[in-house]
Design a protein around this nucleic acid. Structure first.
Lengths: 343, 343
DNA sequence: GGCAATAATGAGAACGTGCGCAATCCCGCG
DNA sequence: CGCGGGATTGCGCACGTTCTCATTATTGCC
């Protein structure tokens, strides 16, 4: 920086001002400095900057080390949004989302003087870890507890489950079964709630949810049960991979999808359109979640305080071929929330 | 640090020595210092350290911003390996792998004083970008050009394609068709080469490869062609999602898998076992690639020079239900490389 | 017990930047 | 022409470490 200053015939302080877009720099001076910067190929030293300001231009992300589609997409989307705001992203993955792991990862990020932290914490047992986080660093929780009073951005699980369920009810199905995600995940809970709400609102019977995890294997096991139950005509699974497992189980049992049983998934993984049959599913807006999270972080940085806002991002339904009219013998007449049932 | 020094009754310099495991510190002193550190909850400032040493304890990863299974798994695996060595990982994703994007991302990482850079650059047009990279920072290329003289770690694409092809030939198929990845990807090229090698070694006809990208949609299109060609009995697809698309196309055309046509994929995505039918596929060792990359980086840091080593990590075949004996009318007797053909 | 060698410690200067404050410059107005 | 005030610029310090070099404590050996 000293070299640049010398070449431009100014002090290092003026160079610093040019770099930080300070208002009080004469246009002529600014140009001279910028020319010197370009000529010398000067690049500011982030470490020095972080040292003196106590804050770097980096966001830390804490996520469970998994290649689950949701978290991976979220991470990629957030990285993209951050890059646009000229922030970089540092990742600290944790093997499990318990208190110790999370606070350890957060601690590591604070040691790096990050400008803010994103915790992708979709499980209940991450709650008390987040409670204990020091309040002096901007923080956003993604897919965390929707009832907490912390800055939170989340896919609207409930709304997603509602539109999925409604789509099936609208097709004339008497009720909708549900293969749920693992216990303790807010995603699971929200999707169960939306599904149950919708069923109750429509006056439909609420069958017991089949509890699974997020894997196709669990979906397969659930599917083997569903296939044996003659009165099942519609299933909403908590994600697409579960749906894939269910599809295979039904296939093996000779139950046709969608002729005998209709299915709706959640996530819209890129391959969902090529399952057999192509899967109707709910598409969360990961990019929207990422953008909102970033803005919330930026706002906290600017204001210096933590913002207890909750943002839920609405997902959309992607209709493909895995939903059909209910078989005639089970069909019911229904109208759901203003949407007249077809046929 | 000064506080710690005062509390322990030593100079700040001694505290620094304790932190860096310098040999010349008396045991008694070390314990006193450590006690002081614990009592004060002191944590070293990474920015200051980076400033004076010119190097941080962070690795930078450059990857294309995608949720492709391969890159995402690689990233997760590398992050895990790095965390174990107490390094953190910073991600700079690029929208496309052209020269400008890559060198920009690398530049950003260098600005952050990273200890080393990992470039996940599976395409030919990334080559000259990597050529131009400054040699003063440890670098490893993952899935880059296998013919370049740079530190490189890669999944052994050729070997993977060979075992996939061999598996099909061993089942008695006269030849094996191939749905390839996009042009310009080393993954595609390596898989084509392994497939062709194996076919030629076995004296089988080499049909023209069907060129696609990595999506299920492209696989579906390829599958529609394959389904129409009566003499196709075995297909090796460049990844699992392509295989999924092919499976659906074949299903729609009434071609049974594996009875009429056998299929082998590549990647072993978690759901592959639940495709219809469960997919036989090649599983790359992402964790192995990540570990090797990390070691290569660490070695370069230690030695201070760049190491031009190439490491290829062997994948394994995961046999499931998508491969069957060739239909009798097309079957050939064959023995491939010492493996007696069954039946 | 004394001397040399070695181990252990300390003092002070960097590293490259931003901040507060003082100094200077420029402009317009009376 | 002089003066006030805002715009611009410069000076020196501080951030928290590690590095080099000098100094002091300890040990082994005769």
């Amino acid at each position: 920086m000293t070299d640049v200053a010398r070449l431009a015939g100014v002090s290092h302080q003026t160079v610093s001002r040019v770099l930080n877009d300070h208002p009080n720099v004469r246009e002529r001076t600014r140009l001279r400095v910028q020319a010197a910067i370009a000529e010398l190929g000067y690049r500011p030293n982030h470490a020095a900057r972080a040292l003196v300001t106590g804050r770097s231009r980096t966001f830390g992300v804490v996520a469970q080390n998994s290649t689950l589609y949701g978290p991976a997409s979220l991470l990629a989307a957030f990285e993209e949004a951050a890059a646009e705001a000229r922030f970089s992203v540092s990742v600290a993955s944790v093997s499990s989302l318990d208190r110790q792991s999370i606070s350890g990862a957060v601690q590591r990020h604070r040691d790096q003087q990050v400008a803010g932290i994103v915790v992708i914490a979709p499980v209940t047992w991450a709650n008390d870890a987040i409670d204990q986080l020091p309040p002096d660093v901007p923080l956003v929780t993604i897919d965390g507890d929707p009832n907490r009073n912390e800055p939170l951005v989340t896919v609207d699980q409930v709304a997603g489950a509602r539109i999925a369920t409604q789509c099936l009810l609208d097709a004339g199905h008497r009720t909708v079964w549900h293969v749920s995600g693992p216990d303790g995940w807010f995603d699971s809970a929200g999707r169960i709630q939306g599904w149950r709400d919708m069923l109750e609102a429509a006056g439909a019977e609420v069958p017991p949810p089949l509890s699974a995890d997020w894997t196709a294997a669990a979906g397969y096991r659930a599917g083997q049960m569903l296939a044996r139950m003659a009165d099942v005509t519609a299933v909403f699974t908590a994600n697409d991979h579960l749906a894939l497992g269910v599809l295979r189980a039904l296939h093996e049992h000779g139950r046709k999808v969608p002729d005998d049983i209709s299915i709706v998934g959640f996530d819209d993984v890129p391959e969902a359109g090529f399952y057999i049959p192509p899967l109707t599913t709910v598409r969360p807006d990961f990019a929207g979640v990422a953008r909102t999270s970033l803005q919330l972080l930026l706002a906290q940085i600017e204001e210096g305080g933590r913002r207890s806002e909750r943002h839920t991002i609405a997902p959309t339904l992607v209709e493909r071929d895995s939903v059909a009219r209910a078989p005639a013998r089970t069909r019911v007449k229904r109208r759901a929330e203003g949407t007249p049932a077809a046929g």
